[in-house]
């Protein structure tokens, strides 16, 4: 088992492994997505309070979960980068940042689309919304720093430090924003109401969450492959690849 992980740390092995794995993950994602969307948009019952517009949660909630999950993946990669200088961890963290930012953005946009008919306004300075917005800023800061540093490996280590600083800060930011809200004005916005959710609504939600996970894994592996090719373009093994070398 350990041997497998050691092998996975080497770029040529990882490149081939990811290339074989990514299509399968993509296919699983597609199947889950089709079933989940059908189940969520057609089969699941209408909400007695919110009508049909609640169905946006099948995009919104998985996107919000992914926005945090991807940051955690990046944090783990940052630890691997700082302590063991694992090249693959650098590559995966780099490839994850734009994906995390997109999921965060998606969560914000869908939340705002849902908020317009429900709350009567596009944006509320609600605790969760605000902390999600700040998470987006953190992602954008990480991407900006990575792009600003010329040497890729230095850039990866710099962003690793920033990611870890962010990990310490995310809970603090989250709770401070929630307390800020309650300190000021009290809950003016009623959230999704009772926590008990009908299983017929829950199952498509979980299916969609899994679909988003597989989407992320498939895309991050493909992005990581591209990043590896770019970084290692001067090495012998890349030169010998059939897709680089030509037929």
């Amino acid at each position: 088992m350990m041997k497998f992980f050691h092998k996975l740390g080497s770029p040529p092995y990882f490149y081939g492994f990811a290339g074989r794995l990514a299509p399968w993950l993509g296919i699983i994602c597609l199947i889950l997505l089709v079933i989940g969307l059908y189940d969520g948009l057609v089969v699941a019952p209408t909400d007695y309070q919110q009508g049909e517009s609640y169905r946006i949660i099948y995009i919104h909630v998985p996107a919000a979960w992914m926005s945090l999950f991807i940051y955690m993946v990046m944090a783990v990669c940052a630890v691997l980068t700082m302590i063991w200088r694992v090249k693959i961890a650098e590559v995966i963290a780099t490839a994850s940042a734009p994906l995390g930012a997109s999921f965060t953005f998606l969560a914000l946009v869908t939340g705002s689309l849902w908020g317009k008919p429900m709350w009567g306004t596009w944006w509320v300075w609600d605790g969760r919304l605000t902390s999600e917005l700040i998470l987006l800023f953190l992602y954008l800061g990480i991407i900006a720093l990575y792009n600003a540093v010329e040497d890729k490996r230095t850039a990866a280590r710099s962003t690793a430090v920033l990611t870890l600083v962010g990990v310490v800060n995310i809970p603090i930011i989250h709770y401070s924003v929630i307390w800020w809200n309650t300190l000021h004005q009290g809950p003016t916005v009623t959230k999704l109401g009772a926590p008990s959710i009908d299983p017929r609504m829950l199952i498509p939600l979980l299916l969609m969450a899994m679909a988003f996970q597989f989407y992320y894994f498939a895309v991050v592996l493909m992005q990581a492959r591209a990043e590896i090719l770019e970084r290692e373009r001067n090495t012998a093994w890349v030169q010998q690849l059939p897709e680089v070398n030509g037929p």
């Binding site: 800061g141 720093l145 920033l162």
Partner: peptide
Amino acid sequence: ALTVGLRKGGIILSLLVLPLYVPVLIF
């Protein structure tokens, strides 16, 4: 420390640091 070696460090510095200042501002 992260941006000191960069030529256009100033604007990136504010992108990095301002989100981290949120809790201090709030409290």
